[in-house]
Amino acid sequence: MLEIMSKVKVAVVGCGFIANAAHLPSLKRIENVEIAAVVDIIEERARKAAEEFKADKWFTDYTKVLDMKDIDVIDVCTPTYTHCEITVASLKAGKHVVCEKPISLKLREANEMIETAKKENMRFMVAHCLRFWPEYVRVKRLVEEGAIGEPRIARAYRQSGFPMWAPWHKKIEYGGGVFIDMSIHDVDFLRWVLGEVYEVYAQGGVLLHKDSTAPDYVHALLRFKSGAIAYVEGSWIMPEGFPFTTYLEIAGTKGLLTVDNQYTASLKVFKKNTCSTYTPQSEDAYYLELKHFIDCVVEDKEPLVTGEDARKTLEVVLAAVKSIRENKPVKLPLGEEVIL
């Protein structure tokens, strides 16, 4: 257990979109955190992030931070296919690890990450940010309080253009495609609220971006052990300039709730040809998520999203890929690895 008053030293590995847009600014705002180092294989990105977020050191090789004795936490923000290697190496070096979602693209790797954390007795969390997203947390609480009775049927959309900022998304073996990378948010949240999934049927694939091997559109029908059913849609085929849109509704025996990020935001900013719709909050999901993990490290608590949770969520999105390939409903647990 760490000294309560001392600063937790964090190294951020991977300085791409999610690190710059979410992790680094959030870590910067957590009082008992010091961004001790940043790492990116692209030197320019590492140097820039170090400058902007006042990190002491920057590296292009992540193993360098594993050798730094005073670093407590590694925040893994690299492309999905590298999560396992970096996480396992960090845990073995005696670092706590918070890793961006998806945990990995392979169940075998997820197992290895979970087992290593246990063996090394290190904290490990996967950054499923919806579990900290203020309106989604509110939904979870409302359902728990019985506001809609027993949940029966849910819908969740997540729609945007193709994530061009990260070209690795075009390779299925790197990112898994829209359902694995993006709908995993909704799947994980629905698991949190509705319980475990036992069957998946999905349709979709590469519908628009023919230079991509990763599916750019998937919609799936999930069946939960609780008896609930859900429609989950992930789209990267919206037209250029389409605002990132999320929608959730859950109907139960005593009511219905909906969350719609385009209709219920507190702010709209119009500029030439663009409009941003959002609800600015200083304690936003990324801040709350990273703050939670730091608290878990300091207070030696189990994080809200365990490796096992992330693995179960991964299994559902992999089942969707398998279902598309076989054009039939797929039951969980999966008997074998789905090779992307």
Binding site: R152, I153, Y201, Q203, H219, L221, R223, G227, A228, I229, A230, Y231, A251, G252, T253, N327, P329
Partner: peptide, 26 residues
């Protein structure tokens, strides 16, 4: 060409027929 559907557990348990379902088409 193809239809896949799942009928959910009823929102209104007293009804003799289904009251919710999801359908995927190709």
């Amino acid at each position: 060409n193809t239809v896949y559907a799942r009928i959910g557990v009823n929102i209104r348990p007293h009804l003799p027929t289904e009251d919710n379902a999801l359908i995927l088409l190709r």
